[in-house]
Design a protein around this nucleic acid. Structure first.
Lengths: 228, 228
DNA sequence: AATTGGTAAAATTTCAAAAAAATCGAAATA
DNA sequence: TATTTCGATTTTTTTGAAATTTTACCAATT
């Protein structure tokens, strides 16, 4: 039988995904001490696979490990958010220019497909907010990655992914969803895609930068309010 | 007693450093399958701390982990080298501009100090090549980081560090040492530092880019020869 | 000769408990 | 009252071995 590469995944590997998700979604809030016994029960897994998972996440910044003192969810701060968005803007603009330069018909098609998927979810009337949100988040992620996918740089994609998830965590921590304060995110995405498809790199980068800056401002002001 | 932060380190933590070093230095060549029992004897440690260490390294690219099939040292390729150097150039130039813009007297002093340390090692007559080389490598690393240290971006520094180590591995894999083919690396470094201290960001970035490109060309031609 | 199937060996992954270290609280000291 | 010291408890880390999965090998079949 054609097995493909669908081998059974490792416990540690699944745990890494689960914990990362729970951190990004805010189920495990910033600063939480990660008690190993408690967590391993929570996730119905052994302590050693759990340690492996946490070790992996500590290499990319979601978790802070301190020798002999275990693990904790990394703290959030205005400073880190600003740094994240600044570097993210730089990297995504570089990748976007490369992607527009290299992108072929297949890239264009995939981009349009990703945009369509995201749009359909946006248009769905808000029934079950939570589960809908999960779908929109993945659609949103996939759209942004599709935009850059022709850049042909493994490193850029790796770093950008890390920053994307970091950024998502901040947005979720501040309980911001797609449409906040009369902002028309759908149109922003549409314009961004059109600029990319027209191979207008300068315009696309400007739109992307503005897109990030708007989000950052919203999150920053939410953080200010929350602190009061 | 003033303890500082000199707590006892964890076995897994030390292992991660050792293995990373051995990968960068070529003691563990690209593609090596990492047999856990053998390795744990080699490093005189248990398998679980070892797995933790390898898991951490797999998040930054030195090690490739495949579920149920263990770990192996990541392969090297022309493609990855080119990508590494391209992204590294972009990131270091961004960081360098920020560093020059922000850098205060303390930054200047640290930079000069780091350069002096590296120079002194370079001037030492080649007696024990291997141990000397280790010193020069750390001096070289510290110099480049000192150059960027005022950029005030944790993310940039993290990514740049990863790329620096990746790049070092390629240079070492090709058995290239500091001075190859009549290249005057000392002068390159000196000029780079002077441009930075003069706050001439454009010139400094140009020198840095040239510095990287020269190295890349050398490594690439070595890889061609090795393949024959 | 090449491919399939099945078994033995080897390696990876996971578990459970021991060992080491940090934390907490109360008693003792200044 | 504030600080230190000591012991008990919790938590992290490591160990050694069981369970699971992959790999290697060899015979049988096409």
């Amino acid at each position: 039988m054609l097995e493909g590469q669908s081998q059974k995944r490792t416990m540690a590997s699944q745990l890494a995904d689960s914990v990362r998700n729970d951190i990004v979604n805010g189920t495990l809030p910033p600063g939480t001490r990660l008690n190993l016994n408690a967590l391993s029960k929570q996730y119905a897994a052994g302590v050693n696979p759990l340690r492996e998972a946490l070790s992996r996440l500590s290499a990319t910044g979601f978790i802070t490990a301190e020798d002999q003192r275990g693990f904790k969810v990394s703290e959030i701060s205005r400073k880190e958010l600003i740094d994240t968005q600044r570097v993210r803007t730089e990297l995504e603009c570089i990748a976007l220019r490369l992607s527009i330069a290299n992108g072929d018909i297949n890239w264009e098609s995939e981009l349009i497909a990703a945009h369509h998927r995201m749009s359909r979810i946006q248009r769905t009337p808000m029934g079950e907010r939570l589960s809908l949100d999960v779908n929109w988040e993945t659609g949103h992620h996939d759209f942004h990655m599709a935009l850059l996918s022709a850049c042909e740089s493994e490193w850029l994609m790796l770093f950008i992914n890390t920053l994307f998830e970091c950024s998502t965590r901040y947005r979720k921590a501040m309980l911001l969803f797609k449409n906040t304060l009369g902002r028309d995110v759908e149109t922003e995405h549409k314009n961004l895609m059109d600029a990319a498809l027209n191979k207008d790199a300068d315009h696309a980068c400007a739109l992307l930068t503005a897109h990030f800056n708007e989000t950052t401002e919203l999150i920053l002001s939410s953080m200010d309010k929350a602190k009061k």
